[in-house]
């Protein structure tokens, strides 16, 4: 059970199409996404609620990976329900959330550093992972929901054996607080949702390709017991990764993408 301290502070962030994000700022939580899931399971989910933990003690990455937070980093989960979840096909949320995360971090990034999205939504800072997204979906009482969990290393990069990670503070400049970053991120998410509503996934895909690893990048994909090597050939119209391999084209639905070192 996620530890819930008394009385989180709540901030209202107006949305472009009316209404508002409700940002709950908790001093300390086990996992922001777990708290969202608990509320959904208890029938207490609400569209547009975002949970931020100033300290997250049991963060989760994808498929059982630990998401470590030494403190001062962003741990934010956004709950979407009903129409708020249905506005976007499930498979496109990773790209919309990834663009929002990229743009929010870019707002605070000093010149001379490079941000890049890695399919579908890891965020690399100068080639090292600094932020990630875990999206969970389901339905409760016949109503669809998504929980978009976003973690970003703002002040500190955790030490993880075998993984090269980065944080924003390494770049110098003013590092935003987690609540400030969360507010920027929610506004950016709103902007990309509006873009999708107006222009469809084509515009999202174009924006992703401008911010992601370039077409032609050599990549390896580990998908369960299978591994593919080839060059990135773009995104299909449902977001599937297209890979050119020596044995022909491959469509990647899921798997860990490893980018070859570039100059």
């Amino acid at each position: 059970m996620t530890h819930i301290p008394a009385r989180p502070s709540i901030r209202s962030i107006p949305r472009m199409g009316g209404g508002a994000w409700l940002l709950e700022v908790h001093d300390r939580l086990g996992s922001t996404s777990d708290l969202c899931r608990e509320r959904l399971d208890a029938g207490q989910g609400a569209n547009g609620v975002a949970i931020l933990a100033l300290k997250q003690t049991a963060g989760r990455g994808s498929r059982g990976r630990e998401w470590s937070d030494p403190g001062g980093n962003l741990a934010l989960s956004v709950m979407l329900m009903g129409q708020g979840a249905d506005d976007v096909p499930v498979g496109l949320w990773p790209f919309i959330a990834g663009l929002a995360l990229y743009d929010a971090v870019a707002d605070f990034l000093p010149a001379g550093h490079r941000l890049e999205l890695k399919w579908p939504n890891d965020l690399l800072l100068d080639g090292r992972k600094m932020a990630g997204i875990l999206i969970e979906t389901g339905s409760a009482g016949g109503i669809a929901w998504q929980v978009i969990g976003m973690g970003a290393n703002l002040r500190c990069a955790p030490v993880i054996a075998g993984r090269d990670v980065a944080c924003l503070a390494e770049c110098g400049g003013d590092v935003p607080t987690a609540p400030d970053m969360a507010q920027v991120l929610l506004r950016r998410l709103d902007g990309w949702l509006a873009c999708h509503a107006a222009q469809g996934f084509g515009a999202i895909r174009t924006a992703w390709l401008e911010r992601g690893h370039p077409v032609g990048t050599k990549i390896d994909v580990k998908a369960g017991n299978r591994q593919f090597s080839g060059t990135f050939a773009g995104l299909a119209d449902d977001g599937i990764l297209l890979l050119h391999t020596a044995s022909g084209p491959v469509r990647v639905v899921t798997g860990e993408v490893l980018l070859a070192p570039r100059g």
Binding site: S62, R63, V90, G91, W93, P94, P120, N121, I133, L134, I135, E136, T137, G138, Q146, G239, I240, V253, T254
Partner: peptide, 13 residues
Amino acid sequence: GLVEAMKVFNAVK
């Protein structure tokens, strides 16, 4: 179980 597509996870219940 768990179904995953493009890093979106859907619990099989």
